[in-house]
Design a binder for these strands. Sequence first.
DNA 1: ACGGTAGAGATTGTTGAACAATTCCACAAG
DNA 2: CTTGTGGAATTGTTCAACAATCTCTACCGT
Lengths: 247, 247
Amino acid sequence: MTGTIASVVIEDSGVTGLEADRGLVTRKSTAERVAGVLRKRIAEGFFLPGGRLSEQDIGNALGVSRNTLREAFRLLTHERLLAHELNRGVFVRIPSIEDVIDIYRVRKIIECAAVRGVRTQPASFPRIKEKVEIGDEAARTGNWKDLGTANVWFHQELAALSGSERVNELVGRLTAELRLVFHIMAEPRRFHERYLPRNHEILDRIEAGDGPGAEQLLMKYLDDAEEQLVGAYADRADAARAAVAAE
Amino acid sequence: MTGTIASVVIEDSGVTGLEADRGLVTRKSTAERVAGVLRKRIAEGFFLPGGRLSEQDIGNALGVSRNTLREAFRLLTHERLLAHELNRGVFVRIPSIEDVIDIYRVRKIIECAAVRGVRTQPASFPRIKEKVEIGDEAARTGNWKDLGTANVWFHQELAALSGSERVNELVGRLTAELRLVFHIMAEPRRFHERYLPRNHEILDRIEAGDGPGAEQLLMKYLDDAEEQLVGAYADRADAARAAVAAE
DNA sequence: ACGGTAGAGATTGTTGAACAATTCCACAAG
DNA sequence: CTTGTGGAATTGTTCAACAATCTCTACCGT
């Protein structure tokens, strides 16, 4: 009886939509969890760009073996968060000025393409609006750290309009890399603050379903941001490298 | 004396441009070389989609320890060539139909954007033309394997028009993933052959410096290719999965 | 015949130790 | 000030061992 009932419930269309829960069941290996911890630490600036990550120290601190830790390093190196130098170890990456330019080149391609396709108010509009408002609130209360992350989220939502899993992953990595850049910069607060009004303009266009209009604003936004960032960054990156060289 | 002369030769501008040779001195770790071998084997179909890669067997065959081999596996998993299932091992990935759709979604964004920017005949035009001709020659001699790779190269050259290191890397991965798809398909030869004339049309537009025109052709090209591929692929992928399940 | 279960065997996950190879650092010699 | 030259420290790689998990087979009761 119960067996029959169970089979009826389970079979065929009963499992439709259940695949979304795979992530909850899929356990993660130790290396992946370690990579998660390190990724977070790097994002929040605990490990600063140029710093070396000692296998022994971190392995002891986290209670994992060197082999496992090296697997985690390998993961983050592939995400361009760490730089691996043979026989010297892994270092938190210091993006070069060429990296910054290339990151913005890709962002322009990806984000603009995603926004351009908008023809009617997208389903994710509330989420996009939310991100803008979080940024406003952070600026009002002077919480510069949250302002930066809110801005990142806003752009990730824009990219997500493409509806592509691979685009989302790519943009996630690009913004993680950009965080390294901001950690090197002197005053990221004023940098982000300046662009808040523009977020609203873009948001308005998206609300109206005017993709091309939003794209035009976004392109100019990214052009200006890149120009300003490149101008302010060149000497900063060199200074960071020199500081590392001088211990 | 000699010391003075030497210092004059080496110092300052003497090293300018030398950084380009860094890649030549940078040795690769064993794990990276192993990953290179496996990547090649997967591309050429030695390891078929769905097949499991045993740590013990491959480790013995290549003469490396399990730890080193696992580092190589991580690398390829990150490139979506292998799928890692906890406590079960790594398998050559069988891209889903959704993967194929997403790959083409990204290709449309990336390649079209790269081509759109063309205003005059690009410096890389000879290289692009060369790829098309290699494809022609392969089709003429019935060398279907070369035809496929030539086609891949052609599109990589198109993407390279963006001038972005990250775009090149991304497209490289997408095409590697597509190779898995072709390995599952029944008749990849006829698939590629059909699009040879279109390559010429696109090439002509690029030669003339007509980026938008090339983009229009390329977009239609990718739309058609995706449609055809998706139609032919769905049951194939399921068949491959079933074949694996039945050993 | 069918579904369930227990257990043996195989494979992966992770650790710790060991040794080789390389880099780093300080110091002496020219 | 540059150029060896040690030794210490760190990474690269392997190996062996055990725990955790999966897979398969044989067995059982219905």
